[in-house]
Simulated scan of single mutants.
Amino acid sequence: MTDPTYKTIEELRAFLRICLAPGHGVEPRTVETLANLMRPWLVDDIAAHAPHLGQLRTAADDARTAYLTALGAWIADETAAATAGSEPL
């Protein structure tokens, strides 16, 4: 099965509205939940129709990666310092 590609903004927005509020007893989702669930093909479709959203997504992903890298480094330094007895945890 191939991933769908939405050719128009209207089709894409209609699909996303259904994803947010599927109905039939399924609880509505927040935009944040939807963004976390989106598959790469859907992220690509959104970026094709709204390049500014693609740029923001890339910046957010880059910021998250930088944060995780910095957090890991900070934890490693803190652990090394605590092992040496120079700083309490």
Rank of each mutant, 00 (worst) to 15 (best):
W41C: 13
L89K: 11
E10Q: 09
L71P: 00
I9Q: 06
L42A: 13
L12C: 03
A14D: 11
G85N: 03
T65G: 00
Q55P: 00
E10L: 02
G23E: 03
P51T: 09
L53W: 09
T2V: 14
A59S: 13
T8I: 05
I46P: 08
A63P: 02
A50V: 09
F15M: 08
A63S: 09
T65L: 03
M38Y: 01
A14S: 13
R13W: 07
G25N: 07
V31G: 05
R17G: 07
L42W: 04
R17M: 14
A76G: 03
H49D: 07
G72L: 03
L16G: 03
A35V: 13
D61Q: 15
A47Q: 01
P40A: 02
P28K: 09
G23K: 07
A84E: 06
L89Y: 13
S86W: 11
I46Q: 03
W74I: 06
T58H: 07
A35Q: 10
Y67H: 10
E11F: 01
E87L: 14
A59R: 14
A80E: 10
P88E: 04
L56M: 12
A81Q: 13
T79N: 05
G72I: 02
V31R: 11
R39K: 15
T79S: 10
N36E: 15
A82Y: 03
T5N: 02
T79H: 05
M1N: 01
W74L: 14
A59C: 08
A70C: 05
Q55W: 06
P4K: 04
T58Q: 13
W41H: 15
Y67R: 13
E32R: 15
R57Y: 05
G25C: 10
V43P: 00
Y67M: 11
A82T: 13
N36A: 15
C19G: 07
N36D: 13
A47M: 02
A80T: 08
F15D: 10
P51S: 06
K7T: 11
A35G: 08
W41P: 00
